Amino acid sequence: TYYTVKSGDTLNKIAAQYGVSVANLRSWNGISGDLIFVGQKLIVKKG
């Protein structure tokens, strides 16, 4: 599943929405910090 980042989104918010961990979101998307951008597509695997 792909999720497109919207204004106001955070990794924590997206992780909670999908029932996954922030660590997994980072791993699946090659993100090291907490910086995400509006319009960015993130890979999300269902929890």
Rank of each mutant, 00 (worst) to 15 (best):
Q40P: 01
N12F: 13
T1D: 14
W28A: 04
L11A: 02
N12D: 14
G39S: 05
V20S: 05
L35H: 10
N12L: 15
A16W: 10
L35M: 13
Q40V: 05
A16T: 12
K46R: 13
S21D: 10
K41W: 08
G8D: 08
Q40M: 11
V38H: 07
G33C: 06
L35D: 14
I43W: 10
V20I: 11
G33V: 07
V20L: 08
A16S: 11
S7D: 15
I31A: 03
S21V: 05
K45I: 13
A16P: 03
N29V: 01
V22A: 10
R26M: 13
Y2V: 10
Q40W: 05
V20D: 03
I43P: 00
T4W: 10
V38W: 05
T10V: 05
F37D: 10
S27W: 11
G39H: 05
S27K: 14
A15E: 03
I31W: 04
V44Y: 04
N12H: 13
T1E: 15
N29G: 01
V22I: 12
N24H: 12
G39F: 03
L35Q: 12
N24C: 07
A16G: 09
N24L: 11
G19V: 06
D34R: 06
F37Y: 11
G30A: 12
V20Q: 08
Q40T: 06
Y3K: 02
S7M: 13
Y18A: 08
F37A: 09
T10A: 05
N12E: 14
K41A: 09
S27M: 15
Y18T: 08
G47I: 15
G19H: 12
N12Q: 14
G8I: 03
R26H: 06
L25N: 00
A23P: 09
T10G: 03
L42H: 00
S7V: 14
G8C: 05
K46Q: 15
I14A: 01
G30Y: 10
Y3C: 04
T10L: 04
S21A: 08
F37H: 14
W28C: 03
N24A: 10
V38N: 07
S7G: 10
K6V: 13
F37G: 06
Y18I: 09
I14R: 00
A23Y: 06
A16V: 11
Y3S: 02
Q17N: 10
Y3N: 01
R26E: 07
G39I: 01
I36H: 02
V20W: 03
V22F: 03
S27G: 09
T10E: 05
G47P: 14
D9Q: 02
F37C: 09
T10I: 04
V22Q: 06
T1F: 15
S21P: 09
K41T: 13
N12K: 13
D34V: 07
V44K: 02
D9T: 02
Y2K: 06
A15P: 00
K41R: 12
A23F: 07
Q40F: 04
K41Q: 14
Y2E: 13
L42I: 11
G47E: 15
K13R: 09
D9R: 00
N12I: 13
I14H: 00
N24W: 09
V5C: 05
L11F: 05
K13V: 09
S32P: 10
G30F: 11
I43F: 09
K13M: 12
I36W: 03
I14V: 08
Y2M: 14
L11D: 01
I43T: 07
N29A: 02
G19Y: 08
K6C: 05
G47H: 14
N24D: 15
I36L: 11
S27T: 14
K13D: 12
V20G: 03
Y18F: 15
L25E: 00
S32K: 10
S32R: 08
V38G: 05
G39A: 04
S32Y: 13
L25P: 00
V22N: 05
Y2G: 05
D34M: 08
V20N: 04
S7F: 12
I14T: 01
V38Q: 08
Y3P: 01
S27L: 15
I43H: 07
Y3H: 12
A15C: 05
W28S: 03
K41S: 12
V20R: 02
K6A: 11
T4M: 07
K6Q: 15
F37Q: 09
Q17G: 07
W28Q: 04
S7E: 15
S21E: 09
I31R: 02
L11G: 00
K13C: 08
V38A: 09
V44P: 01
I14E: 00
V5E: 00
I14K: 00
T4I: 11
T10Y: 04
S32L: 13
A23W: 06
K41F: 08
V38C: 06
I43G: 03
K6F: 04
T4S: 07
I31L: 15
G33A: 09
L11R: 00
W28I: 06
D9L: 01
A23L: 09
V5D: 00
D34K: 06
K41Y: 09
R26N: 05
V20P: 02
L11M: 08
K46L: 15
V20H: 03
